[in-house]
Nucleic acid binder design. Structure first.
Length: 498
RNA sequence: GGCGCGGUACCCAAGUGGUAAGGGAGAGGUCUGCAAAACCUUUAUGCGUCGGUUCGAUUCCGACCCGCGCCUCCA
């Protein structure tokens, strides 16, 4: 297998991946702030981190993946108060929703989930350590700040040069409680009515940046293999994490930095004000499938912006349908027991597998990996059509598909189940009106059950035997109107939801 | 203004100093009672524009045009 290589934001180069301790690849990913439902842009990042961990595992790495959940911050405090819930109730609701969505999208759960509110003492200890070296200081308002002047390497990740920036040149420092305009908050002094912790630093709550530093080092050690997040976090969040951590430990923090570029919607950044803001649940209620969303978001390599469109989603749905049909066909068909005279199919499968692995090893080129599988699909389908596919080749194909799916995870069809779950959620939240008529007809109350469908198919098969094609076609059309598509094959009737 | 990314067929998109993967869509065909699925054929003398380097550039260099992101909370 080719060695895994990945672009490192810190060095600006493609570098080999390895576990520094020779055993377990330890990495940290900045997780969600649970103040609302996640949108598909959020999930693009987590989906690509999921590919990274799956590729590591496919390459026989043991992994320890830690993700934080920010369950206290300004937005949570604001939204919880508006919803009339406690911070804990509110953030737990959206944390649960977040992980449900992750599961719907086939994202594996990290080995450890670190909640900010459960690790306050570690953050306090880290700030105390920085304070002992005069790197953290307490402002007149009782908040604690990080003295950037103490960390000359500040800016090394985002390649920003702060040398020429004069404090006070554009910002009147006197208006702030900080010594320098760029100094950032480590600990925020309590404000009336806000959730707070009574600590040696005073009463307050942690800043966002310190959370990740404290929890990453707690779970993974002072130095670890890789740190991931969306591109927007590069500055200032990750820059601040490096500053805090390296000043406290006097050791390098994460060796490798992995940043996933943004998802655009119809050419623009997704935002509520633009009205192009989609959550996973929005899309499921519109009738798009979870697997298609996963496949689309993974089809464009992580280092490129992905322009999300509904056409793209439809395209992705069709591509997955083709893969699943192919998989079913090869798994269920009967193939030649005798060895083939030529090895062209076997060679194509082997070449496809090599290309698939090489593409992933080359900076996670998911587009090329995907193409390699479609190449095999075409070759094997052609052989199957000509009744010259052998049992051995079919098995090799299935083994390759298993490998493919250990990364892409789209072959198993859970889409109907997930859409039904989304409908149930919408009903519970009083948001059923957001579901499209098609989704309601197919999955909502009064829709056909699998047993109903099987009964109709049996009746149609009977009609066909009697050459009553009018009745057979009527049943097929009736099912089609309800979104059920029939396919006659020599191995029986297949059906699927449109 | 600073930093960075991208412009490849109808759409999405990979890629390379030596002559353009893959997917989707369209068209024609094979198969089928008819469909569907599948397969076959077909759709870029061309890779934003203009120069330069080279035997040869879409791929390297320069300029320009267009789009986008970050520089503030943000995946």
């Amino acid at each position: 297998m080719p060695a895994l290589e990945l672009f490192n934001t810190l060095s600006g180069k493609i570098e080999p991946l390895f576990a520094a301790d020779g055993q377990t690849f330890r990495f940290y990913c900045c997780g969600p702030t649970v103040y609302d439902y996640g949108h598909i842009g959020n999930f693009r990042t987590f989906l690509h981190v999921d590919v990274l961990r799956r590729v590591l595992k496919l390459n026989d790495f043991a992994v320890k993946h830690v993700m934080n959940v920010t369950d206290v911050d300004d937005k949570i405090i604001r939204n919880a108060s508006a919803a009339g819930l406690s911070i804990a109730e509110f953030s737990r609701k959206f944390e649960d929703a977040f992980f449900e969505d992750m599961t719907s999208l086939g994202v594996e759960r990290p080995e450890a989930i670190a909640r900010a509110t459960e690790n306050i003492p570690d953050m306090v200890a880290l700030i105390e350590k920085l304070a002992s070296e005069d790197i953290a200081y307490k402002g007149p308002d009782g908040s604690w700040y990080f003295r950037i002047a103490k960390f000359p390497e500040y800016g090394k990740l985002s390649k920003k040069d702060f040398e020429g920036i004069e404090d006070g040149a554009r910002v009147d420092v006197d208006e702030y409680d900080k010594d320098a305009a760029r100094d950032f908050a480590l600990w925020k002094a309590v404000k009336p009515g806000e959730t707070s912790w009574q600590t040696s630093l005073g009463e307050g709550r942690p800043g966002w940046h310190i959370e990740c530093s404290a929890m990453a080092m707690k779970f993974l050690g002072d130095s670890f293999d890789l740190h991931a997040g969306g591109e927007d976090l590069m500055f200032p969040h990750h820059e601040n994490e490096i500053a805090q951590s390296e000043c406290a430990s006097h050791k390098p923090f994460a060796r490798h930095w992995f940043h996933v570029r943004f998802l655009l919607v119809e050419g623009r950044k997704m935002s509520k004000s633009e009205g192009n803001f989609y959550t996973l649940r929005d899309l499921l209620l519109k009738g798009y499938r979870a697997a298609a969303i996963r496949f689309l978001l993974l089809s464009v390599p992580y280092r490129h912006q992905l322009n999300f469109t509904f056409d793209g989603l439809t395209e992705s749905t069709n591509a997955i349908e083709r893969l699943r049909t192919f998989h079913q066909r090869i798994a269920k068909g009967t193939w030649q027991e005798s060895a083939s005279a030529e090895n062209t199919v076997a060679e194509a499968i082997a070449a496809g597998e090599a290309a698939f692995l090489a593409a992933l090893a080359n900076d996670l080129n998911t587009a090329e990996a995907r193409a390699a599988i479609f190449d095999v699909l075409r070759t094997v389908n052609a052989a199957a059509d000509q009744a010259r596919l052998t049992r051995v080749e079919a098995d090799a194909t299935l083994a390759l598909l298993t490998k493919f799916d250990s990364i892409f995870a789209v072959l198993e069809d859970k889409d109907a189940e997930l859409t039904k779950a989304a409908l149930a959620w919408a009903e519970a939240e009083g948001r059923l009106a957001e579901a499209s008529p098609e989704v309601l007809a197919q999955y909502g109350a009064g829709s056909l059950t699998d047993a109903d469908i099987d009964a109709l198919i049996a009746e149609r098969t009977q009609a066909k035997k009697q050459r009553n094609f009018a009745r057979a076609d009527a049943i097929r059309n009736e099912l089609l109107e309800k979104g059920i598509l029939l396919e006659d094959s020599k191995d029986g009737v297949r059906w699927k939801r449109k």
